[in-house]
Amino acid sequence: MFDPPYPTVLKPYGQALLALARERKEIVCLGGDLTRQTETDFFRDLIPERFFNAGMAEANMIGIAGGLARAGHIVFVNTFGVFCTRRCYDQIAMSIAYPNLNVKIVGFMPGLSSPGGPSHQAIEDVALMRALPNMTVVEPADAVEIGQMVSAIADHPGPVYLRLKRGETPVIFGDDHALKLGKAQVLLRKLGGEVTVVAAGMMIPAALAAARTLGEAGVAATVVNSPTIKPLDAETILAAARGARIVVTAENHTIVGGLGSAVAEAIAEAGVSALLCRVGIADRFAESGSREFLFARYGLSTQSIINAAWNALGRTASAPRAPAIETPEGAYAPV
């Protein structure tokens, strides 16, 4: 595992999908007028016979994906997260989730990673997809996990929602990192600490940085990476939550219905007594702006995680400050 600022790579999903589709002829790629933005320009240019641009017509695109999957294809549907969840929810429910078809819906620009305002910010996509029977929901944290996730979901015979950051993607994990669909992973071995942070996707760098700062202030913290949000790996998360006084969930998503809710369900049903704090978008729509501005303003920063844990522990002294991380051009660091 690297330390921030993290190096970045471009289009790890697009490269992984192309490589896999060259091996597996049953893979078909659909897009909705966002080919370069969803990294599928490689696929379009090199396997054009299995690439279809459905234009700005997501409902139809989802239905076509269902027909292709019924005929035996593995279909990757690519567009922004807002458009492939909100716009076509009944189509996903009826044409893909209910018949349990082999369609992978890939939604880019999760949460407040889009500068485009509420129309382009998928802040409740996990909640929507998680509510559908048969649907698996995944959110990898870095380029290494993305590459492994593409193969893992292709091997999983059923519908998947894959939530992906767009553009420069950090490399957090080393080559020894092994993602397993349905499994969470303890990233910092400090079990028995007072705080357990459960995070996924773009909140992993902030969770790691917060745990480090808390540790330096005398609060031992564990970080659990949960790239599979549904089905949640309750076993791993419960093991890390038992004995902790505070469980903090961190998600680039509304606190309603996403990772925080999934963890809440798991620990409540298991009778784990830790206090739960959900760090995420506080049930409101956001606005346009840079990632740095929005993550700080809407409570998705390293400091938000530190404050949540610190206050829940009842510490009276002021919370330790997250160090500013100098980030050269092309590198990535949490806000």
């Binding site: 078909v28 279809f52 409902a59 139809n60 695109m61 989802i62 239905g63 076509i64 994906a65 269902g66 027909g67 292709l68 999957a69 019924r70 005929a71 035996g72 294809h73 189509q91 009826m94 044409s95």
Partner: peptide, 13 residues
Amino acid sequence: QGLSGAIGFAIAS
């Protein structure tokens, strides 16, 4: 929704 599914079948064929 049926026409979209039918198009998927026609492409697959």
